[in-house]
Deep mutational scan, measured.
Amino acid sequence: SFNTVDEWLEAIKMGQYKESFANAGFTSFDVVSQMMMEDILRVGVTLAGHQKKILNSIQVMRAQMN
């Protein structure tokens, strides 16, 4: 498990989005775990492969939080 959203993004090789997530207010796992595709688009993730990777990881995160 990760301590910060930045660490999580690095771990899934999506570190290039750290600033975008932070600027959009997605700075805690409570918020990130609620993200939908529209949120991912809003933070500027436009590549389908990256969207899928982030969404898949969020689903895993949700499962671990319950």
Rank of each mutant, 00 (worst) to 15 (best):
D30L: 11
D39I: 02
M14V: 04
F26K: 05
A24C: 09
R42P: 02
V32K: 00
I12W: 03
W8R: 00
S33L: 15
V5P: 04
L41S: 07
M14P: 01
V60T: 12
M35C: 04
V45A: 03
K52I: 14
W8Q: 00
S33I: 14
Q34N: 13
L9C: 02
I54G: 00
W8E: 00
Q51N: 04
V5G: 00
D39N: 03
V31S: 14
V32M: 03
E19M: 14
T46V: 15
A63C: 11
L55G: 03
S28A: 08
D30F: 09
G49L: 13
A63N: 15
L55S: 05
A11K: 09
I58F: 02
E38F: 06
F2I: 11
S1A: 12
V32R: 00
T46A: 10
Y17M: 02
A22V: 10
L47C: 10
I12D: 02
A63K: 07
F21E: 01
N66L: 07
N23E: 13
K13V: 07
M61A: 03
M37R: 08
V60Y: 12
F2N: 06
K53D: 10
G44M: 02
D39P: 02
L41N: 06
S28I: 04
F2S: 06
M37W: 12
K52S: 12
F21L: 03
T27C: 07
T4P: 06
M65R: 03
T27W: 06
D6M: 07
M65S: 07
K13S: 14
V32C: 05
N23Y: 09
A63D: 15
I54L: 13
Y17T: 01
V5W: 03
E7A: 10
F2C: 08
V5I: 10
M61W: 07
H50C: 03
K53S: 09
T27L: 08
Q64D: 09
Q34C: 08
N66M: 06
G49E: 15
A48M: 11
F21D: 01
N3W: 11
F2R: 06
A22L: 11
Q34E: 12
M14N: 01
V32I: 10
A11R: 08
I54P: 00
A11C: 09
N66F: 03
K18M: 06
I12M: 11
F26Y: 15
Q51H: 04
M65P: 05
G49C: 10
M36I: 14
M61Y: 05
N3G: 13
A63G: 11
L41I: 15
Y17H: 05
F2V: 09
W8T: 00
K53M: 14
Q64F: 08
I54F: 05
I12F: 04
Q64N: 12
E10S: 07
I54N: 00
V43C: 10
S20Q: 14
M37Q: 10
T4E: 08
H50Q: 04
K18S: 12
E10F: 07
G25L: 04
E10D: 13
M65A: 08
R62S: 09
I58H: 00
E7H: 07
V31R: 14
A11I: 08
E7R: 06
T4M: 05
A63V: 09
M14G: 02
I12S: 04
E7P: 02
A22W: 10
R62T: 08
N3H: 13
D30I: 10
H50V: 02
I54V: 04
Y17I: 04
N56F: 08
L41Q: 14
V5Q: 00
A11F: 14
Q64Y: 09
Q34R: 10
Q16Y: 06
F29D: 01
Q59P: 02
T27S: 10
V31F: 08
V60F: 13
A24P: 02
F21N: 00
T27F: 06
T4I: 04
I12V: 04
F29R: 04
I58T: 04
K13Y: 14
S33T: 12
S57N: 06
Q64M: 11
D30Q: 12
V5K: 01
Q51W: 04
T27V: 11
L41C: 08
